[in-house]
Design a protein around this nucleic acid. Structure first.
Lengths: 184, 184, 184, 184
DNA sequence: CATGAATGAGGCTTCATTCAT
DNA sequence: TATGAATGAAGCCTCATTCAT
């Protein structure tokens, strides 16, 4: 879905201000101003503020989850493959801190409704499938696949936050805490 | 710090409404109403809305972190001891979901300032000390103690969320994912 | 229902501006200003603009319809009695033109919903009862009582408008057109 | 004045939406949409919203008043002739309820300015002339001709409303209330 | 301490109108 | 003629906070 110039500018402005000041402390007027458009123009592209928030979340979630939940021909989540996915996502997270922070903020806000969850749920399928395969093959612990899935995501988010904060170069040993947690 | 009746009722009302509707979608008027007091009375007990939010967070963080970061004479975080702390905290979280959810919401909001972090940081000392000891004793991986500390907390929050959502009776095997992640 | 000073001032201001500029061309801000209160104070007394509009209409309708639909021990609507009611109402209308005009405006606006009609309908009972009695007694034409009722009201509104516009002193002969229309 | 296709579609759309939602709750954008044209195209045919409203009113008033105020060689308004005009107008009103309702709405709105009144006044001449003649001939009461004229119109509007609402088949006896009101 | 009416700044959104295409 | 994205003024309403009682 290629964004027209103005829609993208609104997304960029919203993301910047949401992470700086919080979603609810960001006025639509300030978003418009930051995007360099008139107040009313925002409503040409989005139904209302909530629509903008939701669409921004969905678009970022799409972007981020595409890295950790790829279309793949692999059937098993071994150390090397998961590490590759994980590293890609961590690097992306480090280079897109505000996107990461917005996702976190959104998910613990009242905007995170069942409707939005349902839309985003579909993105998970690939990785969940891999996890199921790996459990069958005795590569991963026999835990609910959704538990493992969310554990991976949570661990990712947390680790990115830690790396950003401490500016550490460490990667592999952080990944190992994840893999040790779930491997058999 | 024993709370007088009215201050407690304000806390309870705020917690309920904050988790239901989000902090910024909760008016001080609605908190007062839920607490059964007049609008102005809230300002007898708290300087302003932010003061209420902060004090609520600190009080809940105190309560929750006391479970996982106890005063103790132990020096090492072995399987049994960490499991005990973890289980206590998980049970508390399950029985105090809204407190857990508010803490999460607060920590990804703009109210989570350096000032608040500094106050809460002091609570961590006990557990950080134990972690350091365990690393020296080769019981835990040689990772930054703060990384391990936050990993424990994050894993806890996430696991409580999962248990609440799925109503599963499982506990030990979730704990094992944590211990396997950090043990040598 | 005795009005507190501020509620009355809001009613007065709204009535004045509604008849001057139309309901939808009157901002709540201008009403507040005219009433000498702050913008937000209006919402202490009324839920929203529509609530104010409806309550104003109902209160005026109560006032006006009380004149033409009195509590009475009469059982028949003869010339003298109807003339007395009619004259009272006409004089009131002449002295309260804006109230009359607002009622007309309201009734041909989208604010005139079934809910509002239902509330106001109850006021009609007395006069409808008299009309029914008069039809039985062969004093009035055998038409649907509601038709006669609305004919009386419509004729009143129209006549008041005419008198106000032309400043004529004529009364009785206008009344006779009404009575001739409905008498046997 | 034969309307080009698009102007007519705008009139139809406006009439529909004005009667459904009220003039001021109808946006020009919604009119354009309903008419199947672009937002800007409306301004090719009308100077602005008020111009559209006024022209719509004038065109409908022309249409309706033509029925009750015909070009005629008659000189007196006797029972049969007035009944014929009245019946025609009532049937038209029943078949064009929204036109009737719009006219009413317009006339109690701030759009009903002296300018518009002046334009429409000219249409009245024929009927006013007939009324004057009938007064001279002692067929109608010696009242101001304008009073009788407006009484006829008001009675018409009201009766059409009543018929539409109650779906009654009655006609003649309603007409008689009008004729009895004004005849000598 | 407690009250709750009053405030007014500020937020979200609508919409008549324009203009470059 | 016809288009429809863009504008920005203006409207409705909320709400944290104050203060006289």
């Amino acid at each position: 879905m290629i964004k027209d110039g103005k829609e993208k500018r609104i997304f960029d402005a919203a993301l910047k201000l949401f992470t700086e000041n919080g979603i609810d402390n960001t006025s639509t007027a300030s978003i418009s101003k930051e995007a360099g458009i008139a107040a009313g123009t925002l409503y040409v592209y989005f139904e209302n503020k909530e629509d903008l928030i939701n669409k921004l979340y969905i678009s970022l979630k799409e972007e981020s989850i595409g890295l950790i939940c790829p279309d793949t021909s692999e059937t098993v989540l071994n150390y090397e493959y998961l590490e590759k996915l994980w590293m890609n996502t961590v690097e992306w997270g480090i280079n897109n801190q505000d996107k990461f922070r917005f996702i976190t903020q959104f998910q613990s806000s009242p905007y995170y409704t069942e409707d939005v969850k349902a839309i985003v749920d579909s993105y998970k399928k690939n990785l969940i499938g891999l996890i199921k395969g790996s459990i069958k093959n005795k590569k991963l612990k026999n835990l609910p696949p959704e538990y493992i899935f969310e554990l991976i995501l949570t661990h990712l988010v947390y680790t990115v936050g830690y790396i950003v904060q401490t500016k550490t170069k460490e990667r592999r040993r952080f990944f190992e805490t994840l893999f040790d947690a779930i491997k058999i």
